[in-house]
């Protein structure tokens, strides 16, 4: 946790995360850049401002937990873990390679700093509920942050977990939906309309927040509000984001859900992420 970090510094970290994640996917020639870029700003704020974690002791029992329920965008989390020193930075060049810590989808027993293995959509949030419940029962004050995809919310198990968190008064759980509006086969409105996530979570008894998921000031402010609102209600952030955010040819493009850039595209991506589109 580092409450002293400035908005400018968090934006710089987010830029680093984006560049690292895109580089990993380029080097692996495999991976999911679109959703990694849409959640980058929130991941930056969580890892570099909000979360109490210890790279030297990844399983520290009082740590805050991060559950990437949409596990396919793990390069963005790997980038944060690598920059924080959970593993040597050179390991960031091993994404999806044989014997690597950095599996195509996160594995808790291979990669330090991964709190639960994910990859099969719809399941991570349930694990986050278990972690938050254990924290409550043990009288600990750690937080559990779970990032869920908007498409992932098609899975019925998400809503089972949503109900359980309300039932057990888990105000130490923050559910964040990366609401980028796209899933693999089309827009979420075409494939499976979720309508208004905020209204839904409100109906499920959550303390809800609706933000621009790329506005760092708003992100920081929202987490501050959440920490001040330990009222027994689980927390929900409806984060409106842009899939592929920061790389012009990836933004809002279905094709960049799971595709690696070629040499030329990679060079352009690095330039745009550094200088802005």
């Amino acid at each position: 946790m580092n409450k002293e970090i400035t908005i400018a510094e968090l934006k710089e970290k987010a830029k680093q995360l984006r560049k690292t994640a895109v580089t990993m996917i380029y080097e692996a020639q495999s991976g999911h850049p679109g959703g990694a870029l849409s959640i980058a700003d929130i991941v930056s704020c969580l890892y570099f401002r909000e979360m109490n974690v210890d790279p030297k002791n990844p399983r520290w029992e009082d740590r805050d937990r991060f559950v990437l329920s949409k596990g396919h965008v793990c390069p963005i989390q790997y980038s944060a873990l690598g920059l924080l020193g959970f593993f040597p930075e050179e390991d960031l060049h091993t994404l999806r390679k044989e014997g690597s810590k950095l599996q195509g989808h996160p594995s808790m027993n291979k990669c330090p700093g991964i709190d639960i293995s994910t990859g099969s959509l719809g399941q991570g949030l349930s694990c986050a509920v278990g972690m938050a419940l254990a924290g409550k029962r043990d009288g600990k004050d750690y937080m559990v942050y779970a990032v869920v995809g908007d498409g992932e919310a098609d899975e019925g198990q998400i809503w089972e977990a949503v109900m359980a968190a309300y039932r057990y008064h888990l105000d130490n759980l923050v559910v964040i939906i990366d609401n980028n509006g796209l899933q693999i086969d089309g827009t979420t409105d075409e494939i499976m309309p979720q309508l208004d996530f905020t209204k839904k979570f409100d109906a499920f008894g959550y303390d809800t927040y609706e933000i621009d998921g790329h506005n760092m000031e708003q992100i920081v402010e929202t987490f501050d509000k959440i920490h001040a609102a330990k009222d027994g209600r689980p927390k929900f952030i409806n984060a409106h984001t842009v899939k592929g955010k920061g790389v012009s040819y990836m933004e809002n493009q279905l094709a960049w859900h799971g595709m690696a850039p070629n040499d030329e595209q990679y060079a352009q991506a690095m330039k745009e992420l550094e200088e802005g589109i």
């Binding site: 029992e61 808790m108 709190d115 639960i116 719809g122 399941q123 991570g124 949030l125 349930s126 694990c127 986050a128 509920v129 278990g130 972690m131 938050a132 419940l133 254990a134 924290g135 029962r137 043990d138 019925g156 198990q157 089972e160 977990a161 109900m163 359980a164 039932r167 057990y168």
Partner: peptide
């Protein structure tokens, strides 16, 4: 009661909640 959880008629969630509890040292 402090060691008991009832997730309702939601077995898939039960498995995940148990996994989360196990990461925190519980034996669910």
């Amino acid at each position: 009661p402090e060691q008991h959880v009832n997730v309702g008629i939601a077995e898939q969630n039960a498995a995940g909640v148990a996994a989360g509890l196990a990461t925190c040292g519980k034996v669910p």
